[in-house]
């Protein structure tokens, strides 16, 4: 069993020995131990911190993942049921639109776990469930799982690399420009968002990339076919409020909170402890989909989204020692220093 509550508590409460990670200095301020990188730590200290970090992270891997599957299938079934109910006139359309926006946005969270095989890994008995959760979760945003997974893993491999990170096009100087850019990047003639992904997949040229391109095309054609058919049969408003608008709201929300907020500013920040920011969300933990603690996800993608918060507080002292600005999310009960 990976998680032992006592170990976790001990890890959280353990006093941090400054000498463990503070470099020894001589009287003149010069470093007594030759240091390798910019974090001001010597090799020995870095290795010890990394060992401690891995030990803590191990305790937060795994856990109950079935709620993700229930949420994915339940929400997808609810959303699909809206279409016949709307056509039959049994639906409060504004309310259904709001729920569809939540489903479209939240679907990325369940799909995201599947992208990292956190529900079941290759060769495991429930692997099919992992793939099915991924497949249904992003249909409302017309973003096939095959493409989502390849692009997201590329984002992890090349985080903040202007040429190789597929999400680099989300970068913007401030929050309102970031929101504008989520929309701008979806314009047909702009090389951003899914257009950027398509180009990268075409360049990759692998069988998986070809399959992802094909599935993207098919899902987009299906989306258009549904919109056109419903619209010319007198249900254009229903189609707009149940699929077209929730898709746009979801994509913008996801791009803002899962891409821009945790990685801004991107330029030059490609290191393990600098490619993702800690930030204090004005909308809180749930509404920001746990992204305040996204750095934990980038360090350990196998830690499920709902456990990154606890993992953060358990290894906060290590992050601080590695030079991460932890001030936006102080220890529980402490004041927030920085807002974003």
């Amino acid at each position: 069993m990976l998680e032992d509550p006592k170990l976790v508590q001990d890890a959280i409460k353990a006093p941090v020995e400054p000498a463990l990670y503070k470099p020894a200095l001589d009287s003149g301020g010069a470093r007594a131990i030759p240091l390798g990188r910019d974090d001001g730590l010597d090799r020995h200290t870095r290795r010890n911190l990394r060992k401690e970090e891995i030990e803590i992270a191990r305790q937060f891997h795994g856990g109950r993942m079935w709620p993700y599957a229930v949420a994915a299938f339940g929400c997808f079934a609810l959303w699909v049921s809206f279409f016949p109910l709307a056509i039959m006139g049994y639906l409060n359309l504004p309310l259904a639109c709001l729920i569809s926006c939540v489903i479209a946005t939240g679907g990325y969270v369940t799909s995201h776990e599947a992208m990292h095989s956190n529900i079941a890994r290759k060769g495991e008995k429930l692997r099919w469930l992992n793939e099915a959760v991924g497949a249904v979760s992003t249909i409302p945003i017309v973003f096939p799982f095959s493409m989502a997974r390849i692009m997201h893993l590329e984002h992890h491999y090349h985080c903040n690399d202007p040429l190789k990170d597929p999400d680099y096009t989300d970068e913007a100087p401030n929050w309102w420009m970031a929101i504008y850019k989520t929309w701008y990047n979806r314009q047909p003639g702009v090389d951003g968002s899914i257009h950027h992904y398509k180009r990268i997949l075409a360049e990759m040229g692998t069988p998986e990339a070809q399959r992802a391109l094909k599935e993207t095309m098919l899902l987009q054609l299906f989306f258009m076919a549904v919109l056109f058919t419903m619209s010319w049969n007198g249900y254009a408003i229903e189609a707009a409020l149940l699929w077209w608008l929730p898709r746009h709201v979801g994509l913008s929300y996801i791009r803002f909170y899962l891409s821009w907020a945790p990685h801004h500013p991107r330029e030059g920040k490609t290191g393990r402890y600098e490619n993702t920011n800690l930030f204090k969300s004005k909308l809180g933990h749930v509404m920001s989909m746990g992204m305040q603690y996204h750095i934990i996800h980038h360090m350990y993608p196998g830690i499920p989204n709902h456990r990154t918060k606890h993992a953060y507080y358990a290894m906060r002292h290590i992050l601080e020692a590695r030079g991460v600005d932890v001030s936006p999310l102080p220890p529980v009960g402490g004041p927030a220093v920085k807002g974003s």
């Binding site: 987009q220 258009m224 919109l227 056109f228 619209s231 254009a236 408003i237 189609a239």
Partner: peptide, 22 residues
């Protein structure tokens, strides 16, 4: 070609009936 002209198809396939029905 279909994807190149998709905004036009979207205009007549979705926006047009949406405007009319609204």
């Amino acid at each position: 070609q279909v994807f190149y002209w998709m905004p036009f198809f979207f205009g007549i396939g979705f926006i047009a009936p949406l405007i009319a029905q609204t």
